[in-house]
Design a protein around this nucleic acid. Structure first.
Lengths: 133, 133
DNA sequence: CCTTGACCTTCCCATGACTGGAAGGACTAT
DNA sequence: ATAGTCCTTCCAGTCATGGGAAGGTCAAGG
């Protein structure tokens, strides 16, 4: 299977699939003409990576998860640890974004948004207004 | 004021301040010895940028916000539009992260996390288990 | 005057995970 | 033969820095 068909079936862009080969996540065979030749297992791996990426796992996490997936002797504890650490990173990011959201939401609501120059958003950024305690 | 003192007072690393000069956000004077020489206005701008960055605004947003801040004839509507668009991007990111969090949280709880190989996390990633409808 | 150490300068490289594009070879259909 | 689509590699860019090398400047102490 050529890269175009593989891209379509996996849902990943061809560029991304080449990149994954570059960094050693997959190792497709080559046809006589030099084209990459993907088999069902390559496709399965790509779909695995795609789902892991969609859950926000970093590439290195994907590499480790793939290795565990292919290791029949794995301990689920290892998988759980990776996922749990990732979950905590996500929770941290959500908290950070929600803090931004809270402040921004207040500022946007406080801004009249008309032709006049007065603006609490700029006031906050300039440090001239004390933020809420 | 040299860059070290400016970094300390603004809370930004000296590297970052040099970068901000590179991309034209600030234009500090130079002393005879070639050192950057920051005045109160430079420091104020840096603090402004620092606060905007802390709210997640992109550098280009910061540039536009700074220009509006320095324009006495600005319309607050322009500021509000930038902030509102940014707020929507943040809300989108939060929603995306919360969706990941939901799935991951379920998977992590469902994984026994012991020495055995059975793992619903890998099951989900491999596409072998139907996710909840 | 010389040295040490702290500061400053510019320049280039690395990050993460791709994405875009150029230059050129391979295949298919007419 | 030619056109069009696919494939290849390689190089550069993204975003907002951070790290580190090589070298100039300055203030203090001996």
């Amino acid at each position: 299977m050529n890269i175009g068909e593989t891209a379509e079936k996996s849902g990943l862009p061809a560029k991304t699939i080449r990149y994954y080969e570059d960094i050693g996540l997959i190792k497709p065979k080559r046809s006589a003409n030099g084209y990459r030749d993907f088999d069902a297992q390559d496709l399965h791996k790509l779909a695995f990576i795609g789902r892991a990426r969609a859950l926000g796992f970093a590439i290195e996490d994907c590499r480790n998860l793939l290795a565990l997936y292919e290791d029949a002797e794995r301990a689920s504890a290892d998988v759980k640890r990776i996922a749990h650490e990732h979950l905590q990173r996500i929770e941290g990011k959500i908290a950070q974004l929600q803090s931004m959201q809270d402040t921004l939401s207040d500022l946007v609501h406080a801004c009249s948004g008309d032709h006049r120059p007065d603006c609490p958003i700029l006031g906050d950024l300039s440090g001239m207004l004390a933020p809420k305690l």
